[in-house]
């Protein structure tokens, strides 16, 4: 067994995650898509970021 199998397994798992979530009733809605770039747009950062610290502001 080579790492090629590992690549296939990893990508399959991630693809499975996307598919399960999609068919589980949570597909993206293209009609709610933000502007292509946050810079210069009123639809800026989502704020869902690793440094998110609720209550520490």
């Amino acid at each position: 067994m080579t790492r090629r199998l590992g690549i296939v397994i990893t990508l399959s798992c991630l693809l499975g995650l996307i598919v399960v979530e999609w068919v589980g009733g949570n597909p993206p809605d293209p009609f709610q898509a933000p502007d292509p770039m946050a810079w210069g747009s009123v639809e800026g950062a989502s704020g869902a970021i690793c440094t998110f610290a609720p209550g520490a502001e």
Binding site: M37, A38, W39, S41, A45, S46, A48, I49, C50
Partner: peptide, 12 residues
């Protein structure tokens, strides 16, 4: 940052 409006992250 231009596209997302926030810096690159992984853990979230």
């Amino acid at each position: 940052v231009l596209v997302a409006g926030q810096p690159w992250g992984v853990v979230y």
